[in-house]
Design a protein around this nucleic acid. Structure first.
Lengths: 185, 185
DNA sequence: ATGCGCATGTAAGAGGTTACATGATTTT
DNA sequence: AAAATCATGTAACCTCTTACATGCGCAT
């Protein structure tokens, strides 16, 4: 049950559903994502529960724009979520399941290709995160030091994102080396 | 859509739903889990699709036991899944979302406690994986070398599991150090 | 006699994806 | 003229969790 809380977090500044979706796309991508079709009903429900209020104003292009603001109750609910400690996350790593059963496939070359494709994916993600870091350093030369609280904590999520991709990349390399050694040996 | 494929993977040897659930609990825990209430209908559906066949025999204790076996079509479907390359995994890390919004909480001591709780959790998981490794080494002193294919690929999943926990643990330590440095500075 | 392990399932609901529906403005 | 961006939503469907329902055998 994290999405409602994440919406409350994003709505520290008033935003429309459409703008929230853009925020997922730009800043939260590396740890969460939600579609508009999930965001709109979730906002409506939070409003019904008194966590948000909304105002509608005409937009330059397209239909009227509904802007949501967080209430005191909404902020309190967010704070409770944070002080309850780390949430439990269900473990579902389909890729590891594929590798677990890879012996059925019998072809070590196919297994190598699998890990090479995987590495390409992790490298692309790492580079995307490094690009964010690079931009950040342009704007703030002392990065990652001297950040304000509302920059520091997001930076910690960027940090682990990068470290995870590197861990995965090294593992892919190791896996390919070990598979190749098994072919020879 | 990974669970049906995972069931096909597990059913390299015939098993009942109950036994499959035990397998999730013992061997697959660190990357996937499924409840009995999800396993039973999934098996029924796979049988209807011709991926599995089942036979019922009386059990010593409790109700009749339904044992599922994989058909040729089932094995082919598993192979297709593996040769299609790494599956896409939705990114949903609630913990990182909590950290992203942690500046709202304003209390750095609470943030430290959050990371310390988190580290405890990662350490516990690492130790659980190390226990599996230890047992494995007892039975097979050359571990992690000289493994057969059907041990080697599962070992790769254990390997990344361990590396991920270590990466997370180091990050928690780093985070606490940095938060403490911010309090002083 | 109470609870645990074995063994099967169903039902309700939460969370999330994909497809559909509408329509104006701006860019190519 | 076509496609992308802005902007709102609904509906059908899939996945997974939690709660419920049943019942035998064995250990405490």
């Amino acid at each position: 049950m994290s999405l409602p809380h994440i919406l409350l977090g994003i709505l520290a500044e008033p935003k429309s559903g459409y703008e929230i979706r853009q925020m997922f796309d730009s800043s939260l991508r590396h740890f969460w994502f939600a579609e508009l079709s999930q965001i709109y009903p979730a906002l409506k429900k939070l409003e019904a529960e008194g966590m948000l209020t909304s105002t509608t104003q005409p937009s330059e292009k397209g239909p009227d724009k509904r802007t949501y603001s967080r209430t005191i109750a909404g902020r309190d609910t967010l704070m409770d979520w944070l002080s309850d400690g780390p949430v439990e996350a269900p473990v579902r790593q389909g890729i590891l399941a594929q590798i677990f059963f890879m012996s059925e496939q019998a072809d070590p070359e196919a297994a190598c290709r699998f890990f090479q494709t995987l590495k390409t994916r992790f490298t692309a993600r790492r580079k995307a995160l490094e690009a964010i870091e690079h931009e950040w350093r342009q704007e703030c030369p002392s990065y990652p030091d001297d950040l304000s609280d509302d920059e520091f904590y997001p930076q910690l999520t960027l940090d682990i994102g990068l470290e995870l991709q590197k861990t995965y990349e090294n593992w892919c390399d190791r896996a390919v080396r070990r598979i190749r050694a098994r072919i020879k040996g």
